[in-house]
Nucleic acid binder design. Sequence first.
DNA 1: TGCGTATTTAGCTATATGGCTATAAAATGA
DNA 2: TCATTTTATAGCCATATAGCTAAATACGCA
Lengths: 96, 96
Amino acid sequence: MVKVNERVFKAMSDGTRRRILELLKTGPKTAGEIADHFPHAQPTISRHLSVLKYADLVVDRREGTHIVYRLNTTVLQEWLAWLLEHFGSDDRDGEA
Amino acid sequence: MVKVNERVFKAMSDGTRRRILELLKTGPKTAGEIADHFPHAQPTISRHLSVLKYADLVVDRREGTHIVYRLNTTVLQEWLAWLLEHFGSDDRDGEA
DNA sequence: TGCGTATTTAGCTATATGGCTATAAAATGA
DNA sequence: TCATTTTATAGCCATATAGCTAAATACGCA
């Protein structure tokens, strides 16, 4: 069983996926709207979305014909917190 | 020309390399000392070190027979800052 | 049911990655 | 110079990744 954290690192290691996440920061978007922002074929973006979903970084919900993706802010923030905990500079006040 | 940031993401996407960085947080180590901490063959660790070096996350210095690796704290911190800027939660005070 | 739209899945290719063993290279000391 | 130690490089293999096109699936509506 792969830890979520590991999947998040893999998901974040691709520039297109990071740009998808940044795009989703502006609000939920359908798969098609997302694909329109990138120079790749639509199935390519679909695959990126599934990687992001596997990492739990995004959540999808069907709405009629469309599938709407939105950021899973919680996982993203938890990942950032993990990073800071492990690699953040230790020059703060209450450092144990 | 690949941006450093991109290389950092790639470098960080591997668990062994992240553990090498965590190890180096405890202070500089020779390549051999680092390799001793992992269940992989020495050349495998050497390759991981070169990936970290390519991302500028570590710096090496020859000391006689040994090669001492140390964290490049600056790049790591700048990467974290970039991450926070792009993906950090915006629910802080002075948000523009 | 049948059609059109939206999206995913399948299947392919090319390249990248991470592991290994064997070998090379650099420094030291006899 | 030669042997020893330390580390890197070369070369190989298996798997993963990212891209594509073509086909399948899901839904809404006539």
